[in-house]
Design a protein around this nucleic acid. Structure first.
Lengths: 207, 207
DNA sequence: ATAATTACCATACATTTGTATGTTAACTTA
DNA sequence: TAAGTTAACATACAAATGTATGGTAATTAT
């Protein structure tokens, strides 16, 4: 039931979100004025009032930087979910974010990590299920037994990683899916990153 | 290579982390002074200087709320785990924290929530497993079908909640455990909170 | 024994900050 | 045409804020 923001108001809100999730603290009126080249704070003040009136932020009176985002999931993912990744058979990764709509948040992610939503059940014996969000760190060396995200032929999979003498194996824990052995047949094979954690929200399951 | 903080400095740093993660904005000197009962801001000012000198925070001069955390994994906040809770048969809750977990800040972690580590497998069909960390919010009204933490006879359980006409049922999804029906026999029954999310770190499983 | 650190307090001050109030102009809507 | 919204400006002010300086007492290290 929120009213539409004007283009300028949206720019300002975007800047707010950017600052809050990037720098960790909301900007002051002066900060915003400086960024947009306004010559005084009252201009920003009025924009804030308009944005607040439309319900996108909430201001704490008299409090410096007292701006809160009222967006849903404000504790949630600051970054888009980059795609869906198959725990069973490979799925294509979408070039752009698949969930760009409601990602604004206050919370932060490790800068070098990103999120993927898992589809498929090949890792169900590792307790990762369809719909879970996996946190992927691309800057770690995979060790045997770790769960990794890999790309094969333009598709992505989540599998357990094992380095053998002459090849690499990507194993599912679900016996319905067979282990993928990486050799010459996979010229575009690449380890995208290591799954360092999973997160699952319970909210959808409320009855 | 960071120097040790004193107990008070650690308390203040914890408060900073809590505010930044929870409320989204760092507190002012006055906020901190008020919280700890100090009569003026200069006391906090000096503590900040000490904490900064030891390398745990960085301050932006002259900037209100210009405090940044310099912690290594500043995106993984150590949170106390208050106890273990049975997904199968009840287990006692420990009075103090039994451990800490580094929770990624993407996880929804409102200030009023706390963490429990799950033991037992009675909820394995709800995809919650022994060892998982559940995020519990004590300030929400349970709805049918939600997973709750409850206390029965000084022990805690994680079960799915169903309110019937005259009684409350706590169901496991694993048929090995039977549903608990709450009636007069449980005078000390109490809903502790609602499970709003789960988190599982992969680090232990590295081979 | 002396110096350094920690922990708190008090006072003072320049800026920063949010807010209030008016003004002007362009554009939309009734 | 009149009224409302949007968008920018200027000025003014009280409160909030960070900072500087100095003091006292207890504890810890040298």
């Amino acid at each position: 039931m929120q009213k539409e923001l004007t283009a300028i108001q949206k720019d300002i809100l975007d800047f707010l979100i950017d600052q809050i999730r990037g720098k960790g603290i909301p900007p002051t009126l002066a900060d915003v004025a400086k960024h947009f080249g306004y010559k005084n704070r009252a201009t920003v003040q009025q924009h804030f009032q308009a944005i607040e009136k439309k319900g996108y932020i909430r201001k704490s009176p008299k409090l410096s930087r007292g701006i809160e985002l009222t967006l849903e999931d404000k504790y949630f993912v600051p970054r888009p979910i980059l795609g869906e990744v198959a725990a069973g058979n490979p799925l294509t990764i979408y070039p752009d974010a698949i969930d760009t709509v409601k990602l604004p948040t206050i919370a932060k992610m490790p800068q070098d990590s990103f999120l993927l939503r898992v589809k498929g059940d090949s890792l169900k014996d590792a307790y990762i299920f369809s719909g879970d969000i996996v946190i992927v760190n691309p800057n770690l060396e995979p060790k045997n037994g770790q769960i990794v995200v890999a790309i094969l032929n333009d598709a992505a999979v989540v599998k357990r990683f094992y380095k053998k003498r002459s090849e690499i194996e990507l194993a599912s824990e679900n016996p319905e899916y067979k282990t993928i052995v990486i050799d010459k047949k996979y010229p575009s094979f690449k380890i995208v990153g290591i799954v360092v954690g999973i997160y699952r929200s319970m909210e959808k399951k409320a009855g």
